[in-house]
Amino acid sequence: MGDTNLDLNAEREARFVDISGVHKLFGSGKSRYHALAGVDLRIAKGEFVSIIGHSGCGKSTLLNLVAGLNLPTTGTVAVNGKEVNAPGLDRAVVFQSHSLLPWLTVLENVQVAVDSVYPDRNKQFRLEEARKYVEMVHLGKHANKKPPELSGGMKQRVGIARAFAANPQVLLLDEPFGALDALTRGSMQDELTSIWEKNRKTVMMITHDVDEAVFLSDRIVLMSNGPAAVIAKVVEVPIPRPRTREALLEDSHYLEIRKELLHYLIGASSHGSVSAAA
């Protein structure tokens, strides 16, 4: 009996995020667009998975389906055994365009998530909880500033703090560092790995940066070009953790995986531009 329970548990953890047979169509009639054509993907609990592909290949569509912001036309998306049919705090999103509410301070933006998680706790507790996450992304000094006063990197850190403050089971990152300059992006990636090492959330990240994907992920999912995108290839990243940028450069896997990814992206881009080699 115990063994079967254990198996069931293991089974559920192995398919913590379970996307099966998902098609997504937008619009109708002539303007109908077939974005995803049969996507199957399983993400285990505590796994960091990146999805990489050319612009317009439907990566963000896939993420929005897991977030519950959109629903699949056919097929199912389930998280922790429950079918996704609406957005929820168990699936926090870090948006591409940071999407902070500009009339709230940094602290208030983070507290928005905390207030939703703990509607019954007192004000003091919620404030301290929000402050904890602001400190986590090293923005303690800027807690009372409003987003327009922050730099791009700082804004995205607030977005990350807000997502963690929701205490989600799955963290969904939609090209979180896409709008940042290369230096800021590097330090943000370092920060994200160090936060992730501490709590090992299940992460699904959309990116078009090959190095970012290799540095952060356990597995990398390559998507074919849209319309009617499918998963073209899944690449394991067997580089031991914790990873550092310097160690990465000497890792034999790293160069191999990087080459494989770039090769695929360039090969698949005969009718699209390459934005991968960042």
Partner: peptide
Amino acid sequence: ADYENVARVYQLTGSRYFFKVMLP
């Protein structure tokens, strides 16, 4: 749409949606 998505993901509903998203 960005603000609407934030409200949906982080469950800002009712009066919180009204005062923190819609009115501002």
